[in-house]
Design a protein around this nucleic acid. Structure first.
Lengths: 331, 331
DNA sequence: TCTATTGATTAGAGCGCTCTAATCTTGTAG
DNA sequence: CTACAAGATTAGAGCGCTCTAATCAATAGA
C-alpha cells in the first residue's frame, strides 16, 4: 500500500494535520517540524493523493479539455499551449476527444464533468448549445472556435472575416483581379471566411468567385478541377483563397497537374498556418490565427471564472495575420 | 451545491447505499426501487462524483497518458486510438505532455501519478529508465516507442530494423544500387532504423551509405545538400531512405531545388506514414507502423496488468509495412 | 507572579462515495 | 403456523485528505 499522510505523521512524530500543512507549504509551521516531515515523506516516498485532497478541500485543480479532433494539428497546438499554462498555474489537464461526433462528444463531456473539474475548455465542440449550457451550469466553460450567446460561457475565436480580407488584400496588392475562394462548406468558421472574402472583394470593386469545397486536400483538388472546367485559360482566376491549408495543398496539386505553376501562373493563399504550411517544400502563404494567443486567452478567461474574479462573459475575437511565403506572387 | 448521493436517497425515499448500488447498476436491486432512484437522480441532475468513488473503492478508472510531443501527429493518432479503447472499457484518460524535456516530463509524470491512476502509458518518454522504474512501482506502466529491460513494464515498439529493410528491399527491387540513408541522429528509434538499413544493404551485397541527419524537414534538406556536395552526379545515390517523413519531405525539396526530379532521378522513401505522406501533393512512399495496432496492444497490455491477469512483461514488436506511393520508381 | 498574546500544533468532523456485515422481507417447505 | 433460505435493503465504518476550532507552548507586559 502506498504510504498515507498518517504514515508520514507517525514517522515524523507529528500529527496528520501538521503533515497536511507542510504538504501545502503553509507558513505556519516551524522549520524544525517542516524539515522532519519532509524527511519522513522523502524516506517513505510519500506523495499526496490528489483525489482525496480534492474531495476534502472541495476544490479541484483539474481542468477538462474536450478536443474535437486531436489529429488536427491546430488543436494539438492549442492543447500543448494550454498544458503549459495549466502546469505553470498548478492545474492538471484531463483530456477527452469527441471524435467529431456529437454523441461521442456528449459522452466525453459527461465524463469530463464527472471529475468535477474546476473548469472546462471546449475546442470547436459540435454538441448542441443546450449541452454546453448544461456543462456551464456545473463549472466555468470556455469555448474555442465556436460562438455562443449564453452569458455563462466565454469564447475565443479567430476573426475569420478579417483573415479572408487579409488574404484578398494581399492578392489584390499583388495585382490580382480574378480571385476565387475555395469555401469550407459546413466546417467550423467556414461561413465567416467566405463572408469576409466576399466583403473584401466587393470592397475592392471586384466580383467574388466562390467555389464550394471542403477543408481537405481532396476538396481542394476537386474545386480546382471545377474551376478549370468552368473557365477558359485567360479567364481563369489568378488568385486562390483556400478555406484552410489542406485545401490549399490540394489546390496546388491540381494546378500543377494541369500544367499551371504556383505562384507564376496562379497564387494560392491557405488558412491556419499549420506546420504543413511552414514546410519548406510547400512554403505556403497563409493566414495565421495565433494558436498561442488563443490558448492563452482561453486559459486566462477560464482561470478568471474559476477564481471567481469575473462573472460577465468575455468574447475574444483574435485578429489573424498574414504569413507570406512562396505561393503568392505578382499577377 | 451539486446534489450528492444523500440527496438522491432522500428524494427517492431509500438509503444512500441503495443509491450506490443502483449507480453501479448492481443486479441486486428490485426494479421498483431502481426506477425510483433513477428518476430521483434524473430530477436532481445527479451525477456520481468520480473522485469520491475512486477514493472509496480504492480503485481508479483513470489511465494516465504521457505524450512526448502532442504536435507530432504520430502521437496524436495513438492518443485518439487509446481514448477510443479506454472509453469503451470504461476508463478515463488523463493527459500530460513532457514537451521533449526530461525535466518537464518528469514533472508531468509525477503529476500523473498523484492521480493514482490505474495505469500509465508513456509515449516515447525521454526520462531516464530509473524514473520509469519509480513510476512502475506505483502502477502498471506501458512504454510505446521505447524499450526497457525492467520486468515490471511492458513495451510496444515498431520493428525499425524490419521497416528499413522493407524500404531497402523495395528500392533494390526497383533496380537501385546506390542507396543512402538519412539517419535520424539521436531520435527515438533512429538507431534501429539505421542498423536495419545497413544490414539490409549488406544482405543485398551493397555498400550502405549513411548521412547523419535529423527527423525534420530542414534536416532532410541539409543531408541532401551534403550528398550533392560529396558525390558527383553519376555517382549520386538514386535511392534515399529517410529517417522519417518530415526528413523525406525536406530531402525532396532539396533535390528538386538542385534540378533533380523525384522519382525520375531519385527515389525517396519516408518513414511513419504520417498524414503528410498521404497528402496527394506529396504522395510519399513510406513505411507504416500501424498506430492503431500499437495503441491497441498498449492498451491491452495495460489493462491486463491493471486487472492483474498477467505479471510477466510483454514485449510487442510490430512488423511495419510498406506503403508505395509516388516518390519511388525504377532506377 | 499572573494574565494576555502570539504562534505552533492537534483533535475531530466531514468531503461523497463504497463495502462489509447486519437487518429486514418474502416465499416456501415442513 | 413456524422456520429458514434467499433476496433486498441499510447502518456504519472508512478511503486520504482538509479545515475549523481547540489546545498547547512560549514570550511579553503589568
Amino acid at each position: 500500500m502506498r504510504p498515507t499522510m498518517e504514515d508520514v505523521a507517525a514517522r515524523a512524530g507529528v500529527s496528520r494535520a501538521l503533515v497536511s500543512l507542510v504538504m501545502r507549504n503553509s507558513p505556519k509551521v516551524s522549520d524544525t517540524r517542516r524539515a522532519a516531515v519532509l524527511r519522513a515523506a522523502e524516506e517513505l516516498g510519500y506523495q499526496p493523493h490528489l483525489m482525496a485532497r480534492s474531495l476534502a478541500s472541495r476544490t479541484s485543480t483539474v481542468l477538462g479539455v474536450m478536443v474535437n479532433d486531436l489529429r488536427n494539428a491546430f488543436f494539438a497546438d492549442i492543447v500543448e499551449e494550454l498544458d503549459t499554462a495549466a502546469q505553470a498555474a498548478g492545474f492538471d489537464l484531463i483530456l477527452n476527444t469527441g471524435g467529431r461526433s456529437p454523441t461521442r462528444e456528449w459522452n466525453a463531456l459527461h465524463n469530463l464533468l464527472s471529475f468535477r473539474p474546476a473548469g472546462i475548455v471546449l475546442l470547436s465542440p459540435v454538441v448542441p448549445a443546450s449541452a454546453i449550457q448544461v456543462a456551464a451550469k456545473q463549472c466555468p466553460v470556455v469555448l474555442v472556435s465556436r460562438t455562443a450567446r449564453a452569458s455563462t460561457v466565454d469564447t475565443v475565436n479567430d476573426d475569420g472575416e478579417a483573415g479572408s480580407a487579409l488574404a484578398v488584400d494581399h492578392l489584390v496588392g499583388l495585382g490580382h483581379r480574378r480571385i476565387a475562394h475555395l469555401d469550407g462548406g459546413g466546417a467550423a468558421g467556414a461561413a465567416q471566411r467566405r463572408r469576409g472574402f466576399e466583403t473584401a472583394m466587393r470592397g475592392h470593386g471586384l466580383e467574388p468567385i466562390v467555389v464550394r469545397s471542403e477543408h481537405t486536400d481532396v476538396g481542394g483538388e476537386n474545386a480546382v478541377r471545377e474551376l478549370l472546367a468552368t473557365y477558359s485559360r485567360p479567364d481563369l482566376p489568378t488568385g486562390l483563397v483556400s478555406g484552410n491549408d489542406f485545401n490549399a495543398v490540394g489546390a496546388i496539386s491540381a494546378l500543377e497537374e494541369a500544367g499551371l505553376r504556383v505562384p507564376e501562373d496562379v497564387s494560392v493563399v491557405g488558412y491556419d498556418n499549420t506546420s504543413l504550411a511552414a514546410l519548406r517544400h510547400l512554403s505556403l502563404t497563409t493566414i495565421d490565427q495565433s494558436r498561442k494567443d488563443m490558448a492563452r486567452l482561453a486559459f486566462e478567461a477560464l482561470i478568471e471564472r474559476v477564481r471567481g474574479e469575473r462573472t460577465e462573459p468575455v468574447r475574444h475575437l483574435l485578429h489573424p495575420s498574414l504569413v507570406v511565403r512562396a505561393t503568392t506572387a505578382r499577377a
